[in-house]
Amino acid sequence: MDFAKVAAKRLGAVVVLLLTLSVLTYALLALAPGGPEEALLGDRASTPETRAAIRALYHLDEPFPVRYWEWLTGALSGDFGSSIYFRQPVLSVIGDRLPVTTTLAGFAILLTLAVGIPAGLAAGLRRSGVLDQGITFSTLVALAFPPFGIALVLLYTFGVALQWVPIYGSDQISNYVLPATALAMGQTAIVIRQTRAAALDVGGQDYVTFAKARGLPRLRIWGSYSLRNAALPVLTVAGLLAAGNLTGAVFVEQAFSLPGLGSLLIQAVNQKDIPLVQALVLLGGAVVIAVNLLVDLAYMVVDPRVRHGASTRAEA
């Protein structure tokens, strides 16, 4: 099995999955009470004619399959329609918000891995020591606090009381320090626990003892033996977390008033902005699939058993 084959297989799955996703989202929004015209008009008084005009504008009165088909053919040619609320092409609305979310997600996952993996390894290698107990306890605390709670504490401490970082805005990297930290806290705890468990498991393996018995340098054992073998389960978790961050860190974006995809999705659902919701959901699905594909490819790089296919048992 090689990279190209894996990628091709995945692509087929992507098409099926995205189609299913789009039908389901479309159907759910169509079934839900209310329509975008109410969101657009708000409390303003309106005549039935106005409403009919709006409904006609967005083809809302046509039967569901027809509407979905129109949307689909448009989407396939790259036209995801226009946002009802923003009155702009959906792609440009998303394009405006995307950098905020990718910056936040990238920053957070970087923090998570940079802190989580070394801390988890350290805890696992020095099992039951003071360091291990300290780290394990900290992860418990970090997991117990919800991200928006952490967000408020961080905002108050570093933004308001100490005034080290700005509390509002989204154009400078310093704007992202607190949100990324808030997002990364719980995730770091998960990565630490995963790495620690993996390191403990690897540390008890005969091949580590055998490596020590051959007098290999400590760094080599930590790198080639502990870290590489422990990396496999950690990769999976890191992939899931990254996908989650990219598709919308809703709470943290709200708490820091960051105009990212998470807050956009909430807004779009509230306003029944069907084209926008549709595009955001598909983007989410695509991101999850892409990240998983990357994780699988990373597995192939790290683990020869996956690369060569464990079924190819060679001769003696």
């Binding site: 393996q205 005969d206 091949y207 055998f210 490596a211 051959r214 007098g215 590489r228 073998n229 020869p304």
Partner: peptide, 21 residues
């Protein structure tokens, strides 16, 4: 300094003793 150079250790399970990677 002693391990490997002066004292070697061979273990029981050849399926677990080598680094799979």
């Amino acid at each position: 300094k002693f391990r490997g150079r002066r004292v070697g250790l061979l273990m029981q399970d050849p399926f677990a003793m080598l680094n799979p990677l």
